[in-house]
Amino acid sequence: MVLDCADREALAAFWAQVLGYRITRETPPYIALTDPAGRDPELLLQQVPEPKQGKNRMHVDLRVPAMEPELSRVVGLGARVLRGPFDDEGCLTTVLADPEGNEFCLIVFSST
């Protein structure tokens, strides 16, 4: 996965903390973030000159066991709540933006 950004170092620090990933290499214009357990895909942050415009067509959904502790944690890291929490067909969901405005969601899947 590749995420365009204006400041790859700042966004790498944010996403590394959110995902629990490590910065594994930096080859401008990219910074690679990798899951230390090797379970999840690598995230590349690509620095680009143009600003983000409009809604993301693709975004990250993060499954969490409970909304409130994770929502407080990511907001404390610099995320901004755009919508929610709300019930999205049985899944408690919050839509957020990272420090550069890229949308992502926290989702609690019901056990039923």
Rank of each mutant, 00 (worst) to 15 (best):
Y30F: 15
P69H: 12
L11Q: 10
G76F: 14
A16V: 04
L45P: 01
N56S: 15
E68Q: 15
E100V: 13
D87L: 12
Y21E: 04
I23G: 01
L96E: 04
P51L: 05
L43R: 05
C5S: 12
L19D: 00
T94I: 12
M58H: 06
Q46G: 02
Y30H: 05
G20E: 06
G76R: 05
A37Q: 10
E9N: 04
L106I: 06
R25V: 06
M58K: 03
R25T: 09
A97M: 06
T112L: 12
L62E: 06
Q47D: 05
E68Y: 09
L106V: 04
R25C: 08
P51S: 03
V75W: 12
E103C: 08
A32Q: 12
E100W: 14
L19R: 00
E50Q: 12
F109D: 03
L106S: 03
A37Y: 07
P49C: 11
D87F: 08
E100C: 09
Y30I: 10
M67E: 05
D98G: 07
E89H: 13
D40P: 00
I107S: 01
Q17N: 07
R25D: 10
F14C: 01
V60R: 01
R22G: 06
A6E: 14
R8T: 02
R39A: 08
L82W: 06
A79G: 01
V108C: 04
V75Y: 14
L96V: 07
L19M: 11
L71I: 04
F109E: 06
V81K: 07
P85M: 09
D40V: 01
V60G: 00
Q47A: 15
A12F: 13
G90P: 05
E100H: 09
P99L: 11
F86D: 00
V60D: 01
P49F: 08
T112F: 13
R25Q: 10
D35N: 05
A66P: 00
P28H: 10
D61C: 14
Q17D: 11
R73D: 01
F104G: 00
L96P: 02
V2P: 00
E50R: 08
I107M: 08
G90H: 10
A97Y: 10
D7S: 08
F109C: 01
P65S: 07
D40A: 08
Q53E: 07
C5K: 00
C5L: 14
C5D: 02
C91D: 12
I31L: 07
D40N: 05
I31S: 00
E100D: 02
D4K: 05
T94C: 15
A10M: 10
E103S: 08
P28T: 04
R63Y: 15
E68A: 13
R39H: 14
E100L: 13
M67C: 05
T24C: 02
E50Y: 15
L3A: 07
M1Q: 06
R8L: 07
V60P: 00
C105I: 09
G90E: 14
